[in-house]
Design a protein around this nucleic acid. Sequence first.
DNA 1: CGCATACTTGACGTCATTCAAACCGTGTGG
DNA 2: CCACACGGTTTGAATGACGTCAAGTATGCG
Lengths: 232, 232
Amino acid sequence: MSLACASCPVRDSAACSVLTEEEREALSAAGRTRVLKRGEMLFAAGDEDAACATLVSGALKVSTVDADGNENILALVHPAGFIGELFAPFAHHDVTALTESTLCTFAKVDIQRAVDEYPALAKALLRRSQEDLHATRSLLELTAHASAETRLASVLHDFGQAASQSPCHPAKHFDLPLTRGELANMLGLTIETVSRKLGELEEAGAILRTGKRGIELVDPAHLQALSARKVV
Amino acid sequence: MSLACASCPVRDSAACSVLTEEEREALSAAGRTRVLKRGEMLFAAGDEDAACATLVSGALKVSTVDADGNENILALVHPAGFIGELFAPFAHHDVTALTESTLCTFAKVDIQRAVDEYPALAKALLRRSQEDLHATRSLLELTAHASAETRLASVLHDFGQAASQSPCHPAKHFDLPLTRGELANMLGLTIETVSRKLGELEEAGAILRTGKRGIELVDPAHLQALSARKVV
DNA sequence: CGCATACTTGACGTCATTCAAACCGTGTGG
DNA sequence: CCACACGGTTTGAATGACGTCAAGTATGCG
């Protein structure tokens, strides 16, 4: 299946948006769109021919499994995000779909060639990489020094922002893309702690849980206040 | 003071190593070397005109201070490392010298121009950025899921590697570039816990503390075994 | 010599984990 | 249609690892 850049929802925000029409067309000839169902992997740690990809819709997680077989979620990927370690001989992490996701995939060599051929693409990928770095450091700051309650409040606030169209106000209602277990894992907590703290946040009137995954932000300001609070 | 690329100790490993002699010379004309003493900052979070730099020798820390004034160390920078957020209008983090450090600094605009002019530089910076991302994710994995003992063992092991010339064997003896407080902060622990766990590692015969900062790796295999161990 | 700064050590408290059991929505088969 | 099993989730009680508070010990500098 060939790529349909013309109707691509992230055509103006993905890395390839910096290319000219012609360049984009040439690149798209090398790629193919792919749909992953929840739980399907784009590639696994250790894969030598790990693909590169731009996420068009859905959500992915980046994770490792440690020596004892425990998963370890390191990052989430949102639409327009780019996945791919261009300079590593093999993938360091697993990349898995959290929800049904459509991607625009490329063989690593094709992206490497494109980076050499289109300097603007290299610059765009550099920008994305620095944004990823910043996001990872924010999560690091959270897990290293914040209380369980703060970690949850912060992540809920972020999800609200991500689910919203407008950058200023978070969406009032959204579905968590993660199970409790995944949420706990990503924040360095346990399922039980996540469940309890969500209960407390609901108790306090900050949020409302609807069904398993639904979250309503009743008092975003309260969440934001908690996010800002350090661990005592 | 102008740059002395010819005798630069990281001339073959820093980002600028991908440039031709001529290009490098042109770039060096825009930069200047700078020496920071321990505690001096290259720039602070919020600075609009934050410099970019390649670290020539010494060590830096990347940190934030949260709403309550607590420092939060997010990363270390080793020689040949590159510092600079090319696409952010202002710096997100503080960058401070841990030891006396010499850097090769550039105005942000000059690096931006160089990135546009020399595609190889953009590619080199992309590579460094992805390496930084990987390092940050490793630290995230550590702080999110590992016990205090494992965090310390892992970081000691890493410091041993960094202090060594050969990539296969760690240095047997080195000085910590961080105070106990900085070490604790970076690992999401307290000074007391770090001190205690170091004591236990010494007790167990894995390391030997000499003076305040000196560390001798008596049993690197023991450290490595601990590093691999998950939090139960 | 004396103060400052960093580090170590101990006693105690707390927050998150662990272990265990119950709950709930969903799909399956009788 | 109901019984039942199963994955994800919630809730409770007890444990434990790390944090907090508070002394006490180097090490270095004026």
